Amino acid sequence: MGLLEGKKALIFGVANDKSIAWAVAEAFRREGAEVALAYANEAVAKRVMPLAESIGVTLTLPCDVRSDDDLKATFAEIQKAWGGLDILVHSVAFANKEELKGSILNTTREGFNLALEISAYSLIAMAKEAAPLMQGRDGSIISMTYYGSTKVFPNYNVMGVAKAALEASVRYLAEGMGPDGVRVNAISAGPLRTLASAGVGGFTQIAGIVAGKAPLRRNISQEEVAGSAVYLASDLSRAVTGEVHFVDSGYNIIGL
């Protein structure tokens, strides 16, 4: 019997087969969870649909996380299909590519608002819709963050600010949803080659430094992040909430 047998999981953020969210979806299915995937738009759908089919996922839902109406419609479909929800995975982030290179002084007001809305506020908006579906189910909400939230990395700029806001949101949501038995945590993954990281200037150099300096002397894989997501989604972590769980080969403990 899998660790997530009988659980219902809604995952936002699968863009292709390199996405962290996709590795999480595969791991959840292996552990017995029923999975639904929410995708951003029709361009992404062309990649998501074959992936969903490959692991037997039949519930795929379009959702623009900037739209309250879209979010309400998505969670209404979950309510209709499943009657409730056990696990919500938020693996969503975006900033304009031109603002992920050079100095943070290049950040525009519009770019700042967009990055914070998609990368941070969307977690709160999702949690708001998920809350009534998680009543009495010991639910688990998991988001994805990065060490650039607390330390300065070249070119990460406004995304670092957005991830800091995301991590603060995790803590406040953990307190706000705790009385209903819902746990809220984040996973801080080391550098991974994904569609999102491709937009960050100098990513290859950052990954090389991490591999050379981390205690394990290597970078991580999507599957290793997914393993921690299984733990945080399962009853094994039923007393863990409000945490940022690092999966980065230990890089975050290193000073000079």
Rank of each mutant, 00 (worst) to 15 (best):
V170K: 05
R137S: 07
K18N: 12
L133E: 07
T241N: 10
S234Q: 11
K213V: 02
L123I: 05
A229S: 12
R171T: 11
A186Q: 08
G208K: 09
I187E: 13
N157P: 06
L105Q: 13
K46F: 04
G201P: 01
R47V: 02
T241F: 08
T204A: 15
K18P: 01
G250P: 07
V35Y: 03
L61A: 08
E129H: 11
G181Y: 09
E224C: 00
L256E: 14
A115E: 00
A120D: 00
K46L: 12
Y251F: 15
F28K: 01
A76R: 15
G13W: 06
L166G: 08
T145K: 00
Y146F: 15
A38F: 04
K46G: 09
Q135P: 01
P215A: 07
I220M: 00
T145Y: 00
M159D: 10
K18W: 04
V44I: 15
F153C: 01
K128Q: 14
E31V: 02
V170W: 06
T107L: 09
F94S: 13
G139H: 01
L216T: 14
L105I: 07
Y156G: 04
G178R: 14
L61W: 05
R238H: 10
Q135R: 15
S103D: 11
N41C: 09
Y156I: 06
D180W: 05
E175F: 10
E223S: 14
F153M: 08
R183T: 02
G242L: 11
A130P: 01
N41A: 10
S221V: 06
A38D: 12
V89A: 09
E53M: 08
N219K: 00
T74K: 12
N113S: 12
G139L: 01
G212C: 02
